[in-house]
Amino acid sequence: MPLPTQDVVGILADNLRIRRNVLPIPARQATRWARALDLPRGGEVVLYTGLMYQLIPYIERLVALERRLGDTPLARLTGLGRRLNRFVNGVAFVARPSAGERAEYERVPANAARLLRRAGVEFGYLYEDDLYAGTLAYDLGADEAVAAHARRVVAILRKNGVREVITIDPHTTNMLRSVYPRLIGGYDLRVRNYLEVLAERGMEFASPLGRRAVIHDPCVYARYENILEPPRRLLASAGVDVAEPEKAGSLTWCCGGPAEALYPAKAAAVAAARVAQLRDIAPDCVTMCPICLVNLRKAADGIRFRDISEYLVEASAPPPDATSAVRRPGPASGRAGR
């Protein structure tokens, strides 16, 4: 039996209001990948992750807990849980993924940063001011909480003097580019997705992969933000032979992930149907959204799902002989491999 919908949505909206995220995760952990890359703080152009990839392992922990709770009498206490959660960050107790679980998803923002650097894009990062954009609360209809949160995000961006953000996932892109302008008067932030930026620059790849993979378009890139051509152009330049499933592009089939937080069984059924459409086409599948990645992976049956940034980073690495040539003569460079 699913948990009481209104109470679960209420907890997520309260968290967004009080703690700036539907699932408040430690900012230090969520931005550690940026410190490791020594990304400069702030600037007019910033990489904005909205913490979407970093949130996934925490959501997974919470969904597992929900699944266990849903079948017990404790489910009836969700209303009480919501009242308590206003005073104590419940997530701190229930959802601590391991370093290994986190590393997999923290690698994607790091990949995006590496790719932008390799393409010669200058950008900074906001560290603890890189806030969740409010997607889940918006999708669930908690508009008032989202509008207040959006005003806070925009105020922080303005305080930091940001004029342009480069996003890395479909949902944050959609919130900042298409939803915020409807919520906030005088909104003038330029929002581009890193795949658009890289494709526009005609990024070239030093180590083409020579591999075939089937592509899974996320609904939000395909039917909300019209980001269809840039990933295909980049993958082709990276030497990936892209296979198109029958339901591709604007006709893509959902991964089921949006139902995960409230109805995991429905999410799993939609994901299984999508996997069945993809698995006979190629042994590898390119995903471009953290929610697609985690949900399709759970249903994976004889097919490997990897984020597009993994393919692109691999293909953009200098070939082995070039790396040794660079390393040989000079003093050790702190930027090697970035």
């Binding site: 209809g141 609904c219 039917r223 959902c254 949006p258 409230l262 939609v270």
Partner: peptide
């Protein structure tokens, strides 16, 4: 449980903003 995937909107001949309507109903239910 609607996925807000817009597959329906893609095929709607009347151009109904289906997902936005679903989101508004969620807000009303909340």
């Amino acid at each position: 449980s609607c996925l807000l995937c817009r597959s329906c909107e893609q095929s709607c001949p009347a151009g109904v903003h289906i997902t936005e309507n679903v989101r508004l109903l969620r807000g009303w239910l909340l």
